[in-house]
Amino acid sequence: MSRANEPMDHEYDGIQEFDNPTPAWWHLIFLGSVVFAFVYFVHYDLNPTSWTIHDHHRVAQVRELQRMFAEIGTLKPDERTILTVARDPKWGAVAEGIFASNCRSCHGENGEGLVGPNLTDDAYKNVKVVTDIFKVINGGAANGAMPAWGVRLHPNEQILVASYVALLRGKRLTGLAPDGEVIAPWPEVGADAPSEAPADAPAEG
């Protein structure tokens, strides 16, 4: 065996080497990592039934959407939904998050307008009735100045953010000057809407 702590019978430019054995723990961890690698690869990569990261992602996506939208199901882009859904504090907060991720960079922090128009006044460029907001979000407008979000956002998310935008109207925040035509006020909607939660509640975030 190796002769511990005895220099070997050679030297290079005065440098000697001991004949010490490699530490046992070194061998054990090294072999352990080799065995682990083998088992891992067989289990995850050679096994056709094992899950890929894409399977995990799909499940996470479905589960998260269920968690998010189980309560409201599939929303419809109709007048009533768009005028009410973001009044609910919870859904208003969700809608504000969608607005923050996707709309702020052009329409400003609170919709006061930046590159895109001010959304808090009564003048609109591509909207005549409230459901047009959804159409503009879904399909875009003005030659791509307003991008289409149809393939980027879940339909519920498009409706939620349309609702958020509809409820921005009338806040008249200081920002870009009104642009486009002044249109008729939104119609009144039924009393079963949670009116105690005003539309501007979520805007505090």
Binding site: M8, I15, E17, F18, N20, P23
Partner: peptide
């Protein structure tokens, strides 16, 4: 090279 030179000690293990 430089560590055993500076420390003036033999290298711990040739096998390693």
């Amino acid at each position: 090279y430089f560590l055993p030179k500076a420390a003036e000690r033999p290298v711990f293990s040739y096998k390693l």
